[in-house]
Design a protein around this nucleic acid. Structure first.
Lengths: 154, 154
DNA sequence: CTATATATGTTGCTATAGCAACTAATGTCA
DNA sequence: TGACATTAGTTGCTATAGCAACATATATAG
């Protein structure tokens, strides 16, 4: 006869929770920085970052790259268009397909933000040695790839 | 005379972004599991987890432990009270202070969820070897502590 | 003992996330 | 070609996050 001892989880030591809180902390820093100086949300910034890398992407392509759901993306794009930070041209071949890119103003803002982002990332990662940094990055990437796989094979 | 070459960031290789997406993927898994079977949000589950560890905590103490902002906490607690998963007693000494704990039903639900959570965590971490697992955990903890410090010293 | 500060929790408001339904354009297959 | 499926993007709806203002209770300083 076995006695059933109930398990108690420690939230603090639960890895998904640690990841969540840490990620939230980081988002908070960046969110504050972007909001205060540029009135941009992280979502909006991510869209701009992708469009700087890959101009003339469609909304769907941006969605894939940023993992932003398409309805959220659509509304964020509207705001960026209103502020004239990005521009949109619809394709002639396929009238559904849009081609998005940064405007000159958008590129200016991008160039202002990048050094700030890079510095923030440095500040955040300065708790690691160089080797720890690369270890963490590698492990995180492994985990990321794994979660992507899990998502697509339920 | 120096020429100013504009830097282009790769979003995919930006660590805060990788962390965010990975964390979001994980939250998605858990969110689906808790919602489908128990109609609980992750926030609600975290509150229950803390109250199982530390019964008779006040809302403020739960907020500290879970990093859930107090207004969100307040509303989540209301729902858990409505569902009779937790109970609340206000202290006699200090009538502001509440003492929260799981009800019997709450403990039943907790006991149902724990093995599920543990299994999910295993599935998620099975992309790591044992040593990688502990490495990642250690590094994540370092980063977490660091972000907490950064938050409190702006 | 009173005035002020602080602590605990709640409520109001806004912005965002995310799902689902929808429109419009294009592709496919019989 | 014509019915049906798929794709791109938008809009509606609900739930949640998070800030600020608030109400109430307690602590503290003069």
């Amino acid at each position: 006869m076995t006695k059933n001892i109930d398990t108690i989880i420690s939230l603090e030591h639960f890895l998904p929770y640690q990841l969540y809180v840490t990620s939230n902390n980081l988002s908070g820093f960046f969110s504050d920085a972007y909001k205060d100086k540029f009135a941009l949300s992280i979502t909006q910034w991510r869209i701009m970052a992708v469009l700087r890398e890959l101009p003339d992407s469609s909304a769907d392509e941006v969605s894939l790259k940023t993992h932003i759901e398409k309805s959220i993306l659509s509304r964020a794009i509207s705001k960026l268009l209103q502020r004239n930070l990005i521009q949109r041209v619809f394709s002639q071949q396929d009238k559904r397909r849009s081609m998005l890119s940064l405007t000159c103003t958008g590129i200016d803002v991008y160039n202002d933000i990048v050094p700030l982002s890079v510095q923030y990332e440095k500040d955040i990662l300065n708790c690691f040695s160089e080797s720890e940094k690369s270890q963490f990055s590698t492990l995180l990437n492994t985990l990321y790839q794994h979660t992507e796989k899990l998502k697509n094979t339920p």
